[in-house]
Design a protein around this nucleic acid. Sequence first.
DNA 1: AAGTGGTCTAGACCACCAT
DNA 2: TGGTGGTCTAGACCACTTC
Lengths: 258, 258
Amino acid sequence: MTEPSTLPIYRQIAEQIAEEIESGELPAEAPIASERELAEMFGISRMTARAAINILVQRGILVRRNRSRAYVAQPKFRFDLSSPGGLHEQLRKAGVRPGAKIIVAEKLPFDALEPKVVDALKLTPAEAVFHIVRLRTANDEPIAVEDSYFPERLFPDLLDFHLTDSIYGILKKYFSVEPAGSLQELEISLLDAEWAEIMEVPVDLPTLEIRRCAVTADNTPFEYAHDIYRGDRLIFTARTVGPDTLFPSQLRQSPPNP
Amino acid sequence: MTEPSTLPIYRQIAEQIAEEIESGELPAEAPIASERELAEMFGISRMTARAAINILVQRGILVRRNRSRAYVAQPKFRFDLSSPGGLHEQLRKAGVRPGAKIIVAEKLPFDALEPKVVDALKLTPAEAVFHIVRLRTANDEPIAVEDSYFPERLFPDLLDFHLTDSIYGILKKYFSVEPAGSLQELEISLLDAEWAEIMEVPVDLPTLEIRRCAVTADNTPFEYAHDIYRGDRLIFTARTVGPDTLFPSQLRQSPPNP
DNA sequence: AAGTGGTCTAGACCACCAT
DNA sequence: TGGTGGTCTAGACCACTTC
């Protein structure tokens, strides 16, 4: 609308493809023409066609699979960080099939723990914790990794349960532990190589990182977690309490600015 | 560490430059060799050198200025969304010079308002509001835009004040209005062309969008704002109340899931 | 075997700005 | 004016999948 003809060719082509997708002409999962085909169609070089596709991949409108051509991405999932019901529940309600793949499930001795885990869970010396890393999926598509720590004291045989189910469901059903609240720290970042491999997606993908500590009604911390969510597949919302607002008393467990 | 020699050349060079920056060899604001110089230094083509620089620009480690060469970026600013004191105050405390540039300062009649503004500010028909759009800067670098609405009823001659100062400071000093809390909705997104122009940065930059409504101690909403923060220049933290947690009662002003 | 994306080359022209 | 980045070309080779 501003200066249509002065936009570089690769942006013009990206916009054109984006419009075909928005108009429904190209539905979700539809394959895009190959880079060489696009180049011939538009009378441009392959590198320029590739640049156009890259823009839409970065926006999350197209996805590349392996070394195959690009496809129209499914619409992004909505995830409300403040809503009752975690990711599993919200996906299910949206008609999406939630899943989980266990990457790590181990018991860690006290001495192997980072201080932040010890502090967050208020562990006493020699206490062991369970360390669980899960790849979360939606319709079999990886959307997040969860790196969680649970005190053995509270959940003695946690690793024997079926950990691909909702973990909060297990905690409630078998240990009668329910979250009364949590403190979360958010950070926008780009995916590093290590996590990219675990999540089976490209490096430098924009992500939302969340470090959180969940507590029960009697203010016992029962989970410390570091979650990484794909920014290209999820839209996040969160209701936060803003500046100058006091937190509910049961959550005021550490000084605001360490 | 995994497979050093099989990394593509442009990634190897990006890593090498990144290490020179982390080691302090290249300090903040140091200019990077030009694309043509890099190409010659490493015996590669200019397009490959350019790809290396682009990776670091996307990560926020390098910045491009106009059509000049790339420079080492200043460290990112930390911004705690839940801390007392807004962006202005936090920057000042960190030894950074906060600034603001007025993009729009106008009075809008009731009929020109979007429903979300009317609802958030609980306006009665025929009430006018002040609409202020400000470009926020840190050491003269653009870091955010704030698109805010204030009821005329509460702040009759707001536009006559010096709006490049802290607006909350003006509200407190001249109108005795102080925020008691706010509800915020967060969303990670990519910058569209319109806002990119206002912010004077490239399109598709990763950003954090916040829609918030601030209220006084007697639960009078006095500001509705839509903020966009650069994800490449800021690290955000927020203490959010997680699933299954009740908000402070004075903030429970609308149903959780509209 | 054919087609694909991932990477890389060695050029080119342009607009912009002060290195 | 000379150097810069922004864009674009017309090829190429490779590893991988099967479009």
